[in-house]
Design a binder for these strands. Structure first.
Lengths: 204, 204
DNA sequence: TTGAATGGTAAACGTTGTTCAATTATGCTT
DNA sequence: AAGCATAATTGAACAACGTTTACCATTCAA
């Protein structure tokens, strides 16, 4: 079944995703183009388009890789810290830190917009869900008494906020007057929000 | 000085910005192109490029318009509500609501990325600053005793978080299981964060 | 009524995503 | 071994993009 360079369909796809990843890491999302990827793996655009529906699917695969990396890091932190509150704080900081360490990849994940008719693949949505469910787990063990709805509300609120800090941190250095580092903001957010949320729960 | 259609330089610029705004409102940021804008105002691309450095400057002007609209709304809410805490809550909700009512424009503001060498114009940065300073004002009057650094930290933390909820609200309907509406998240964030923050201040 | 300056155009360049007819290489069958 | 069917691969083409520039035309100053 193999041809020319003895590359399986799967191998070509893997090579293309790798090439896309390095392109993103070096030049950012804007640096990715079908022709560049094709040239990097020693094929032409035509071949690329027999292995991927379009350029968005390719980028989505590269982004899914980054998301998996992030998930692995967060899961590790989760395992390493048994105490519920420090755990969430560390997870939030790791999230922020990941965005800083892999800035280009991070931006690629959240700035990449797919066309209106593009249906997000299951395997991609699964990563997003895994992320949110990790947070939900962490929040649940922080306040085991709360019912599912409350846990969901708190974890989504918290994580949207954490995400907001990460977003505004990147690119725009809104915090250029050095005192208010993103880490400080993160600390302020998580401790204040959660302390009030826990306190509210102990009243009931 | 006027030519062909008796349009001043300023008039052409205004027309182009208007055309860009309606394009964004109708088709989103991706629907904007130099040729489309030019055609809409009855000129050619060449003329457009004599009035704007590049397409980014044009989009920036359109986005600045939206930002001003937003600012006006927020300022109105600020004036209408004298009580410090309800004021912040209403401002946050208005922020969220604006994003929902003008989704395309909102996305255009925050998804538009300018090239690496592009220096953000002062008149644009001024809008961003005005936004943050409005929040800072509101937070300051919530806790007049705090020093400037603490106010800055809290207002930036709060607003990054508010922004995060708005961001995750748009496009991706992460909250499709209806119970956790963005309004609920917003309420949860602002009340919990601020109550803990105020409490912390009253201790000192 | 000239000459200079400016407004405006149209065509061109290089890039993008995407498609597709033509070609080439392979595996299977005879 | 020869030929055929099938699949992989190519390269050219298309439309649209941002941007530049040589050129034309209109106006103002002299």
């Amino acid at each position: 079944m193999a041809r020319r360079n003895d590359h399986t369909r799967e191998e070509i796809q893997g090579m293309a995703i790798d090439a896309t990843r390095t392109l993103i890491a070096k030049e950012g999302l804007e640096g990715v183009s079908a022709r560049k990827v094709a040239q990097k793996i020693g094929y032409t655009v035509g071949t690329l388009y027999q292995n991927f529906e379009n350029i968005h699917e390719l980028i989505l695969h590269a982004n899914a890789f980054s998301l998996t990396q992030l998930l692995v890091e967060l899961e590790k932190v989760y395992q390493a810290e048994p105490r519920a509150l420090p755990r969430i704080i560390r997870i939030a900081n790791t999230y922020l830190d990941f965005g800083q360490r892999h800035e280009k990849q991070w931006i690629a994940i959240f700035r990449h917009t797919l066309p209106r008719d593009f249906i997000m693949p299951d395997w991609y949505q699964a990563r997003i869900d895994a992320l949110f469910s990790l947070i939900e787990r962490a929040v649940r063990e922080l306040a085991p008494g709360r019912d599912k709805k409350q846990i969901q509300l708190a974890s989504r609120t918290l994580w949207s906020s954490v995400h907001g800090i990460c977003i505004l941190n990147i690119g725009n250095k809104l915090y250029s007057d050095n005192i208010a580092t993103p880490q400080t903001l993160m600390q302020s957010l998580v401790t204040h929000y959660l302390s009030a949320w826990i306190q509210e729960g102990s009243k009931a």
